[in-house]
């Protein structure tokens, strides 16, 4: 199983990689459920424009606040302006995913970069400085940070991505630094140095390859946290601004009619819950795979 997992990671040979991936799926049914669900959701998010049954921006006051599951034209009903909720949720998924995925990718990249620099410099001045920054970041109630940054940068999609990326990088940096501090004293690094490899080459070709798998299991959890956080900020009116649609916006719109039309907020929330559950299942399986203590 270990060897096969290594194959998947390297992806040197597509066929064996695919085979061992299927094997992994068979051994982890919960992973497969989560993975397939996320594929479907990602497909909907990417092709929202083509799949949506109606124009999500089109107001049709005549049919406002229609109940879900009553009309085949509007399967999930309509909101206060008579806009199709199913189409709005599809478009919302698109933006929520764009924001979440970009933010987490940026956070992981930044975390790994800082972690490697810090770990290689240890116990130098750079390391001390960077780790104090990490401490501050982790000691800062991060919703406060988010609100301050949003008021500073204004609420646009790029600002939102930046804020979320800034909230997630620190644990990656700390984790990567920890592994670099162990790895950099190993024989293969000394051997590489003897062969004349410089710091840059060591960081990218040797350390990078060995420390990255260690942080992979954190990614699905953070992606789910980022999507939830984005929806929260949009719900509070600090995130994606109307007329752009995000899942949080839909909930925020629904909030004002919740006493009589609770299903608007409920349905958008359920979508987020399902995405979060799927990502949790994926994250769990990865944790099991990459943590030798939990294997068997």
């Amino acid at each position: 199983m270990t060897e096969k997992a290594v194959n998947t990671k390297k992806g040197s040979n597509f066929a064996t990689g695919f085979k061992s991936f299927m094997n992994f799926c068979r051994k982890n049914p919960t992973f497969t459920i989560g993975f397939v669900f996320m594929l479907v959701i990602a497909f909907i998010a990417v092709f929202a424009k083509q799949l949506a049954p109606n124009d999500p921006y089109l107001n049709t006051p005549k049919i406002m606040l229609m109940k879900p599951f009553f009309d085949s034209q509007y399967p999930l009903g309509t909101d206060t302006l008579g806009r199709c909720l199913l189409s709005r949720m599809m478009y919302g998924l698109n933006i929520s995913f764009t924001v979440g995925v970009t933010a987490v990718v940026l956070a992981v990249a930044l975390g790994i970069l800082i972690g490697i620099i810090s770990g290689m410099d240890y116990p130098g001045p750079f390391d001390t400085l960077l780790m104090r920054v990490v401490d501050v970041q982790m000691g800062f109630p991060f919703i406060v940070l988010v609100i301050i940054f949003v008021s500073l940068l204004g609420s646009s999609v790029p600002a939102l991505i930046g804020v979320l990326a800034l909230s997630f990088w620190a644990p990656y940096a700390r984790n990567v630094r920890g592994s670099v501090m162990i790895e950099k004293n190993m024989d293969y690094i000394s051997a590489a140095r003897l062969m004349g490899a410089g710091n840059g080459r060591i960081a990218v070709r040797y350390l990078g390859r060995n420390v990255v798998p260690g942080v992979l299991p954190m990614v699905p959890m953070d992606l789910s946290a980022a999507i939830v956080l984005e929806s929260l900020l949009s719900y509070m009116g600090l995130g994606v601004q109307p007329p752009e649609i995000s899942l949080g916006n839909i909930m925020g719109d629904g909030k004002n009619y919740i006493a009589t039309h609770w299903w608007i907020t409920a349905m958008a929330g359920i979508v987020i819950v399902l995405v979060a559950i799927a990502l949790t299942l994926i994250g769990d399986a990865l944790h099991k795979q990459f943590d030798p203590k939990l294997r068997n």
């Binding site: 789910s224 719900y235 609770w262």
Partner: peptide, 22 residues
């Protein structure tokens, strides 16, 4: 347990206010 962990808390809050509170 997975469900508890995955529900966004503000959404749970809104739903609880509606169902249990109101």
């Amino acid at each position: 347990a997975v469900l508890f962990q995955s529900m966004p808390n503000y959404w749970v809050a809104i739903m609880l206010i509606q169902i249990v509170g109101v």
